[in-house]
Structures are given as C-alpha cells and as structure tokens.
Design a protein around this nucleic acid. Structure first.
Lengths: 222, 222
DNA sequence: ACAATAATGTGAGATATCTCATATTTTTAT
DNA sequence: ATAAAAATATGAGATATCTCACATTATTGT
C-alpha cells in the first residue's frame, strides 16, 4: 500500500468526485492510496484507521472459518465502500479484503472524521442505500446457492460474465464465488462441453448454445 | 391485520418508546397494528404504505424462487424494522414476511414521513447500524451454511435454541432456516440420538451430551 | 366434534457435491 | 533464466443431501 503523492492523488479526487456524498467539505480529509494486486486492504481480525471508497480495481471479501475453509463472501468492484461496518461499530474487522487487481482507494481517516460522518444525513442516507442494496444482492446470491444446483447457477454466471460469447474467468475464483469445490466446477463445465453448450478454446470457452444456457439460468440471474 | 384503537395503541407506544430513534416527534405519525399468527405483513411483489417496527412477536422473511422452492431468509424477532429497504428504494417488496406468532408493530406511514426520515441523521444512523448488523449476521449464517455440514450447524443451533437442556423446535421451521430438506434434518437428528447426544422425550429432545455437541458446533455459533 | 390441514416420521434410491491424489501447464518472482 | 508458486486438469471413491412415496399423529377451524 502506498499513499499517492499530492498531485497524483488530486487527479483521482477530481476524476471521481465524492463531495456530493457529504454535507461538509470532505476534501481536506481525503487521502488516496494505491494497493498492488494481491495486497490486503484489511487483514482478518485487525483494526484499520480508514474508511475506504474504492474507485478503481477489484477485490475479494472473504472469511476464514475455524475449520480452515475459506468462504468468498463477495467480489467487490469499484465503486464501493470498504470498512463501513467498522466505522459504524467501532470493531475489529471480522473479514478480510484482498485485491484482485491493482486498486485505487480514497481513504477517510476514521478517527478524525467519524463523528462528523455519523451525524451527516447526506452521507448516512448514501450509506443506508449502499448497505441495503448490498444486503439485497447478498441475499439473492445465497438463497440461490441453496435453491439451485451448480448447473443453473453456473449457466447464469457464464452468461453474466462472458463477453461476446466468450467465457474466460479463473476457475479458482469462480468456484469460491459460487461456493463449490474446484473439482465440481470443472466437472460441470465438462458436462456443458459434452452437451455442446460450450467448447473449449484457448484458455476459455465459446458459448455455443446461448438459448439452452438461458433456460438453465432460469431466474437465478445474479 | 387490525389497527389498534387509540387507547390500546398508546399503551404500546409508551411501553416501547422509539422517540429516541428520531430527531423530530414521531408520535403524531405512529399507528399500532396487530397481526394474527400466520398473517402476511408483506406479500411478495406487493407494495406497502408503512415502515414497521415490530415490538412484539416473531416472523419469517422468505423468498419464493421461480422453480417453486422457498428459501427462508431469516427469522425476524422483535425488536426489528421491516420494510426499511423499500423505504430507501421506493420499490415493491421483493420478499415476503409472514408472522409466526401474533405480532404487534408500530407503523410509520411512508408517504407522509419519508422525506423527513431520509433527512434525519439520528434515524439514518440507527438504520445504518441495523442494516450493517443484519448484513453481518446473514453473512455469517450463509457462509457457515456452505462451510459446514448440517451435523455441525445443527449442533450449534440446538445449543443456541434449547432451554434447560431441552430442545423443542418445529422441524418444519428449522429445516428451512438451516437450508436443508426436512428429511435430512430428521436423518441427522436420528444420528444424534443413535450416538447418544440426544434422547427423544415428549415432543422434543433432551441434550444428553452437551460437551460433544459443543465440539461439533465448533465456531459455527449462530 | 369432526374434517381439514399441518407436522412428524421412515424407507429407498438418486444425485450433487466433496476429498484426496497426482500430473501438467502457466504465471510470477528473483 | 530458472525455480517456485499458482492455476488447470482428471480419476476414483466417499458422503451429504435431495426427492418421492407413504403412514401416523397433532393442531386448527367451523
């Protein structure tokens, strides 16, 4: 993690204006941080001094269980808040966040601004909206995880994440996201090829039968 | 659903004071409603005119999937908000809420008070806290659902919900809550009896081996 | 008090998914 | 350039969980 120098930071602050989120002038408090690919933004069980607003990049939010299993809770993609729960609750981070790509964040030092933030109706309204939308999408994802077998969810995920009928995601990430083992993901992908919905090409898959995939996806659209 | 008469309503308003949640006087807007056991507070895909604060009772929050499966998202027990997402988003209810017991709710007419609420820092802060705690507990529940087999989650659930070493919950509710089939729940309960952790008694189970149950529960404490 | 509805209970067979072992290929770091 | 680490790939066997069918026992509404 490195703090961007004044000039470079200013560039991002202007490119992604967040002043409308606050009823006071936030700019004097803002820092701009850059995280390398694979770097941790929050370690599990640690404390942090900042509320982040990620403006560029992508990260994984996960939790490690006592039995050693890791659950990927969500992919976070910009723009998004990070650390907002801890701002509200003054707790240690129960979850970890690790970047997937290089990531740029606006950072608000919590100690200095906390009280102002928690009394600011504009910010709080934005935060409520953010939290409620997140809750809605998490709930959708998790209930679908238990209501549909991988076949359906994967079809839906492939349709959503493919570009010009070409699917090319990292299996290691996808299986965590969909909450199944790596082995099983490969197994169902192989089935899709067998059935002619997909064909392997280069390091990805060509969608051969979008109609059937759509049918499989049913409503389990993420 | 019936609106309680003035006098009776006042009793509840005084018993469960919610004025500290607002920076203005909410009482002129408050209604008090009573829902019978099994009644719907929100139908899926409908609109509603109230934000509710449940002060007595218990309800189920669920969603019906297009394949007909029903996912119980959460048990709501008093005190809790209901309809807060819709207040924020001005949308139809994506989810249904049905009471499990007779339920008393304070009701705030959204159309009249919406703008005031969304500009009230005290209320918004409370709502943020509520939403973030809910998100935390939902996430815990769902990640544990996929990280642990029923054996562990059930042990944990039994310990949590039993009273004086006696477990007596409705299987029909529990299996929905834990996200498994009724059949499988009974199967694992039978295993627990077989292994001597539980014995059937009347319409419930006596906890015979709390130590082993605790071990099974690991950290998957709800 | 009786019919209807909901909850409980059990068997048998199917399947979705997991674990583990192991090999190859690709990417990353030094 | 090379070693180390990460991602891909596949087989075989285990198991957690589901579906469906059917019988019994409570609970509820009228």
């Amino acid at each position: 993690m490195r703090k961007l120098p004044e000039a470079e930071g200013l560039h991002y602050i202007e490119k992604y204006p967040i002043s409308p989120f606050f009823s006071f002038d936030i700019t004097p408090y803002l820092h701009v941080f850059e995280f390398d690919k694979g770097e941790f933004i929050f370690q599990e069980q640690s404390f942090s001094d900042y509320l982040y607003y990620m403006i560029e990049g992508k990260a994984k939010l996960y939790i490690t269980h006592k039995n050693g299993k890791v659950s990927l809770i969500d992919f976070l993609s910009s723009p998004t808040f990070m650390g907002e729960m801890e701002l509200l609750n003054e707790e240690r981070y129960s979850k970890g966040i690790q970047t997937v790509t290089k990531t740029i964040c606006l950072a608000v030092p919590v100690r200095e601004v906390r009280d102002k933030l928690l009394a600011d109706p504009i910010f709080l309204k934005i935060l409520c909206l953010f939290l409620s939308q997140k809750a809605t999408s998490m709930t959708a994802k998790y209930t679908q995880n238990q209501a549909y077998p991988l076949e359906n969810r994967l079809a839906s995920f492939i349709l959503m994440s493919s570009d010009q009928n070409f699917y090319k995601e990292k299996h290691t990430e996808v299986c965590e996201y969909l909450g199944v083992s790596y082995r099983h993901l490969l197994f169902v992908l192989a089935q899709f090829c067998e059935a002619g919905y997909l064909t392997k090409h280069n390091r990805g898959f060509i969608l051969e039968d979008v109609e059937t995939l759509k049918q499989l996806a049913l409503e389990s659209q993420y």
